[in-house]
């Protein structure tokens, strides 16, 4: 029997909000699928598009960028800048039919443990539906 597809999602979580929400969910025993491998970044605005592309090409089935809600950003407006960069990245992925829906940007505040768990669950499920990311399968990348 073929093993059930188990998505690998790379998470870039902002130190101030989303990383805190992950802890909050854990400490409150709000559980979520074990599919996200988090990298703590200082700000969602520091996530370079090439990191996301690298992850997708390296075999990530999804990339989740988590930041603070508007006006919440510790760095005043890093999340707004992240938003524009992700919009550009998604536009490019869409044009090239590289499935932009594998890249998620979500605002998850430090007080939103439930939302964190829900987002991870929803993303894991949607990526499961999609199946493995063909970008990572290609031996030519």
């Amino acid at each position: 029997m073929e093993k059930e597809f188990d998505p690998k999602i790379v998470g870039f979580f902002c130190n101030w909000c989303t990383a805190a929400a992950a802890d909050l969910a854990g400490t409150s025993r709000i559980q979520y699928p074990a599919n996200v491998r988090p990298i703590r970044v200082m700000c969602s605005g520091s996530v370079d598009a090439s990191y996301v592309i690298k992850a997708l090409l390296e075999g990530a089935d999804g990339v989740l960028i988590g930041g603070c809600h508007p006006n919440d950003c510790h760095y005043v407006n890093g999340n707004y800048k992240a938003r524009r960069r992700v919009a550009l990245l998604k536009s490019i992925l869409t044009t090239l039919d590289l499935d932009p829906d594998r890249v998620w940007l979500r605002w998850i505040s430090a007080a939103e443990g439930v939302r964190f768990a829900k987002v991870v669950r929803q993303m894991t499920e949607e990526i499961k539906e999609k199946g493995p990311n063909p970008m990572g399968k290609s031996t030519q990348t």
Partner: peptide, 19 residues
């Protein structure tokens, strides 16, 4: 400069998606 700046009123749904 586009990648250094932003507008508050663009892509406002992005990130806020309900779960």
């Amino acid at each position: 400069l586009p990648l250094a700046t932003f507008r508050e009123d663009e892509f406002t749904e992005m990130g806020e998606e309900k779960v």
